[in-house]
């Protein structure tokens, strides 16, 4: 099953390579990975989505803790979280379908952030399911380019770390 884990790491050069390298050499597959700094400039937060049974997840977490730059690993499996993903989708938008696309975009509370004579670029924020649903609907018009940030997650309520 899919797990979303947050990894708090020292904000230093090479830490992303150490973490990603660990996944590769231990044979763990990364579905998505998002990294940024946190409220503490010395600490970065990675949100990593991985697929695997619980035993594999436990091994991943233990191996991550062996990296000196890893401060904390949180597996969000059993807790309430807010999770979001942002996508930019450039879709073919001929005059005949523009209205239709704009309606779809509005239903999803997404935004059109760039317009050319043949395309729209759409920004959507939400859960991975929501992004999937919108890209599914837009695919029939022809998606030219697309970029997703990967999931980011915070647990609800008071901070855990």
């Amino acid at each position: 099953m899919k797990h979303t884990i947050s990894v708090l790491v020292n904000n230093r050069p090479g830490v992303l390579a150490r973490t990603a390298g660990l996944f590769a050499r231990r044979g763990f597959n990364i579905d998505s990975l998002a990294v940024s700094t946190t409220q503490d400039p010395d600490v970065s937060r990675m949100t990593i989505v991985v697929e695997g049974p619980d035993a594999v997840l436990e091994q991943i977490s233990k191996q991550l803790y062996k990296l000196m730059d890893v401060i904390k690993v949180l597996d969000h499996q059993d807790e309430a979280v807010v999770n979001r993903e942002l996508a930019l989708i450039k879709v073919d938008a001929s005059p005949a379908v523009r209205g239709e696309i704009m309606q779809t975009v509005s239903i999803f509370r997404a935004n059109i952030v760039d317009v050319s004579d043949r395309t729209f670029t759409i920004e959507v924020t939400g859960s991975a399911d929501k992004v999937d649903a919108l890209t599914g609907l837009l695919s029939k018009y022809g998606i030219r380019e697309m970029m997703r940030t990967g999931r980011i997650v915070l647990s609800r309520g008071a901070p855990t770390a």
């Binding site: 050069p13 090479g14 390579a17 150490r18 390298g21 660990l22 050499r25 062996k66 990296l67 000196m68």
Partner: peptide, 14 residues
């Protein structure tokens, strides 16, 4: 060498 030895050191520094 820090890149090369990442998987075979407990930790490394530049």
């Amino acid at each position: 060498i820090t890149g090369i030895t990442m998987p075979i050191t407990k930790h490394n520094y530049l």
